[in-house]
Nucleic acid binder design. Sequence first.
DNA 1: TATTGTTATACTCTATAACTATA
DNA 2: TATAGTTATAGAGTATAACAATA
Lengths: 157, 157
Amino acid sequence: MTDLPVKSSRGPVPGLRRGPGYLLARLGADSRGRWRQMLAAYNLTPHQFALLFALSELGEAHQKQLATLIGVDPRNAVLDFRRLDDRSLIVQQPDLEDRRRRIVRLTPEGASLVTALRRDGEQIEAEMFAPLDAEEREALHALLLKLFDGLKSSEDN
Amino acid sequence: MTDLPVKSSRGPVPGLRRGPGYLLARLGADSRGRWRQMLAAYNLTPHQFALLFALSELGEAHQKQLATLIGVDPRNAVLDFRRLDDRSLIVQQPDLEDRRRRIVRLTPEGASLVTALRRDGEQIEAEMFAPLDAEEREALHALLLKLFDGLKSSEDN
DNA sequence: TATTGTTATACTCTATAACTATA
DNA sequence: TATAGTTATAGAGTATAACAATA
């Protein structure tokens, strides 16, 4: 490889260096890719897993609640719900108080799947954050949480 | 809104709380969305801008170099290069030393577009990281850089 | 044989528009 | 009128397979 003569017009920078927003996007895509690869073995997309996971914490919820919670447009989650339903990972019942709504719950199969995936997920996080020591990871996690909550609360739908 | 009776089986958690990998993916998608919205006014995708930006730092490079640098499969960048070429934002010349390669450079139009976008980008970053104070932003940036470099160097292609 | 760029395909993701049934 | 869910569409993102020209 002839490593092409680069006319670097700005100092000794070997590659690229970018702002925190770019790094977030880049690292976020990396994280998503790792999860996607793991989930592929279970025939799940990241969105589908996020829905299952959210249900495992909430117990039950409407489609719209779940979709907005995981940051997906409810219109784009409909198909995911159907696929999870087809595979008997969730059940959907009409809400008697408002028949437009469908109450979604995990089935036992869905719940045990989430348990398994949670374990696999821990390993992914370990690999992903291997470059940082325990203290740095905690600091990063705290900053990400603060940023996430700050942005979410300023959306004001 | 009847806020559906949620059987929260795990404490007072109002929404969801997840690991740093999930937060990275989520915040990364948010950042990408902000950039996408801004770039749409210029008829550019995030990938296309990343290529232009990378070129503005490198001066010149091959398609493959640029694509891998910004984390995109070179096969999926071909169309982006063509579109940038069609709009005269870049020029591509055959490499005399290796005629399989195409050397890519910014045109003056491309360079001045990058300058404009760089300014818009600063505003996006300011909005995106508004929940954090200056010290926290710097800490986050440092951690993201360390994580990024650590992961990149362990890829060893 | 391996690499650069190319073409093509498929699925996911994101953003909209328009519809229904209910409220 | 407004909302929950549905259907459909389109462009962007991601991952592969296969190929021609060149090394």
